[in-house]
Design a protein around this nucleic acid. Structure first.
Lengths: 265, 265
DNA sequence: AGGTAAGTTCCAAATAGTGAAACTTAGTTT
DNA sequence: AAACTAAGTTTCACTATTTGGAACTTACCT
């Protein structure tokens, strides 16, 4: 839709190609990538070669296909530990999930999207879209709106601009105006709902995970179905979630920033 | 030690910096990175800015520290699912671990190193170096030698060249010659041992995971201590491991290469 | 106020990236 | 078997990006 103005730089292009390979989720031919690529043949070719040489993607010469490479797998482990609140939040998610028995999501903001970094299934599982590692829209998910509502104004504005406002259900908010109004309500209420805005029959409550300084570290949500819960009965879980959220925030800060560096050369 | 000749290209440099940030495993200051960086100040600075702008790393302005970013977390997760045999092998590892009760490792080759992609601890755990996501040497680990022994000759030669042959223990193979001889033995025997070559007191048996076409998909090992096992008693586990390995290989191939692409535009 | 270290910006020179088009394979049709 | 076609790879003159020493700006510590 909208043209991204500043995608400049070779590095940016290479990373776009990497995203593209990742998006296929399976080994993919050069021509397939070319079709959906914004770059000319020779450029795409060279970028792929560079990425392959760097081990970020692998090239299977026999089949002529590209796939994500092992260098990323190695980074995966380190990324998970360093950049995500998932390892810190794990025990608290376990506890919350056990007590509540409904689906629990832990999410973070990735550009203008929601990245689910961890998940606990309901005691009685429910089919739904989300999955750890997947991304979802900000404007029509509980965690997305919760995180957005407490984001700094400049980031918030940017993200609101970048949403696509596709109508998933009758309840989906389909304009910036509607979303802004909803964010106001969320802020004064102290938490967010998803009232079947993304998938019919699926509702949730969500809280932001905030650092001491008020920065958004992530979001926590409890999801259920209209068959099992109403918004009100979900709202009853909020105090419980508040405890979980503040514990995660506390641990996250002391863990991620050991404040003083313990050695000097 | 040896200078890497072809690290050229902006993309390569940027990815090196990414690795460097990842290696710290915690939020890191610009000056810390500069100290251990091969790039001049201004260059490093710009590379970090680019990576941050791309979401591969995050920059916390308040504390002035860089950390791995969410875009990387997302890519990493997809890489784990697409490029690693870990998700496919998981149930088989679980089963093997349960029956054998010793430490089980699943590994893949990453350039000239062993990348541990999954691990099951022994019923009675043992302190040791390895961990999922970590890398280890090829020439003195069971999985490393097993994977190397069945690698294609060109890759094998390259990897043998690139080893450092550091003497970890009295049993470590410390020359290309010795390693080549060992690989011959491994090939005719059908599996590899690690006879305290990396850590004293730690021994293991390892098998390669081979595709139908004979390509090395990964390696599987069972590790124990000299106190609990001899090489012979570990060798007794090989038939069991063979079954596991062939099941993983079978699943991996049908999963990773659905062979025909199911749709055409 | 003065000093030192960390982080940021500048700019001319040098390099690395670009992409249309030509070329090479490999596979298919006449 | 020759001609056609599609997929993948290489070339090369043109250009935009990258480079890094040095100067500058904070911010903190005497």
């Amino acid at each position: 839709m909208t043209e991204r103005p500043n995608e400049a730089g070779t590095v940016g292009k290479a990373l776009n190609v990497l995203d593209q390979v990742a998006a296929f989720g399976r080994p993919v031919r050069f021509s397939e990538l070319l079709e959906s690529s914004e770059y000319p043949k020779a450029t795409l070719y060279r970028l792929l070669q560079t990425l392959a040489q760097q081990g970020m993607i692998s090239f299977d010469a026999e089949r002529g296909v590209y796939a994500l490479g092992v260098r990323l797998v190695r980074l995966a482990h380190q990324a998970w530990q360093t950049a995500s609140i998932a390892p810190v939040a794990r025990p608290y998610l376990d506890a919350l999930s056990l007590e509540i028995g409904e689906t629990v999501h832990l999410a973070q903001l990735d550009h203008a999207q929601v990245l689910y970094v961890d998940k606990r299934n309901a005691a009685v599982p429910v089919e739904m879209y989300s999955q750890a590692g997947k991304v979802g829209p900000v404007y029509c998910t509980g965690v997305g709106k919760a995180m957005l509502a407490w984001s700094r104004i400049d980031a918030q504005t940017r993200i609101i601009e970048q949403q696509s406002y596709h109508r998933f259900t009758d309840n989906t908010l389909t304009s910036r105006r509607a979303l802004r109004a909803e964010l106001d309500i969320i802020c004064s209420r102290g938490f967010a709902f998803d009232n079947e805005e993304h998938e019919p029959g699926i509702i949730c409550v969500a809280l932001p995970i905030l650092s001491q300084g008020g920065r958004v570290l992530g979001g926590l949500s409890v999801t259920s179905t209209t068959a099992r819960h109403s918004l009100d009965s979900l709202a009853a879980l909020v105090p419980h979630m508040k405890t979980t959220v503040s514990r995660i925030a506390e641990d996250a800060e002391s863990w991620r920033f050991p404040d003083q560096i313990e050695e000097h050369a």
